[in-house]
Simulated assay, not measured.
Amino acid sequence: MVIYKISNKMVIVKFGESSIRDSFRKAVELVLKLREENEVVVILLALRRSQRLFWV
């Protein structure tokens, strides 16, 4: 996971495959906490399994 502070009120959070697979609930909690005081953009990198499902 990487967090970029774009401005005083905007944050971009990028989650890789392992951060979502290992702890989806913690990722959601982090985004909700950041939303209390910021506009948040979330980038999710595709999980291998879901990529295969989309291309079937």
Rank of each mutant, 00 (worst) to 15 (best):
M1G: 11
V2N: 11
V2E: 12
V2T: 09
V2R: 14
V2K: 15
I3H: 03
I3K: 12
Y4V: 00
I6L: 13
S7E: 05
S7V: 03
N8H: 10
M10F: 08
M10Q: 13
V11F: 07
I12A: 10
I12V: 13
I12E: 10
V13G: 06
V13N: 01
K14V: 04
F15P: 04
F15L: 02
F15V: 03
G16R: 08
S18F: 10
S18M: 09
S18G: 02
S18T: 01
S18N: 12
S19Q: 06
S19M: 06
I20L: 15
I20G: 09
R21D: 11
R21T: 07
D22Q: 12
S23D: 15
F24V: 04
R25W: 10
R25P: 02
K26E: 14
K26V: 02
K26H: 09
A27Y: 06
V28C: 07
V28R: 01
E29R: 12
E29Y: 09
E29P: 02
L30G: 02
L30A: 01
K33M: 06
K33V: 03
R35V: 02
R35G: 10
R35D: 07
E36R: 14
E36A: 14
E37Y: 08
N38S: 05
N38W: 08
N38H: 12
N38M: 05
N38Y: 10
V40F: 06
V40H: 03
V40L: 06
V40G: 07
V41I: 14
V42L: 05
L44Q: 03
L44Y: 09
L45I: 08
L45W: 03
L45N: 11
L45E: 15
A46M: 08
A46C: 00
A46L: 00
L47Y: 07
L47F: 00
R49K: 09
R49T: 04
L53V: 04
L53S: 04
W55K: 13
W55Q: 13
W55L: 12
W55V: 08
V56A: 13
V56K: 14
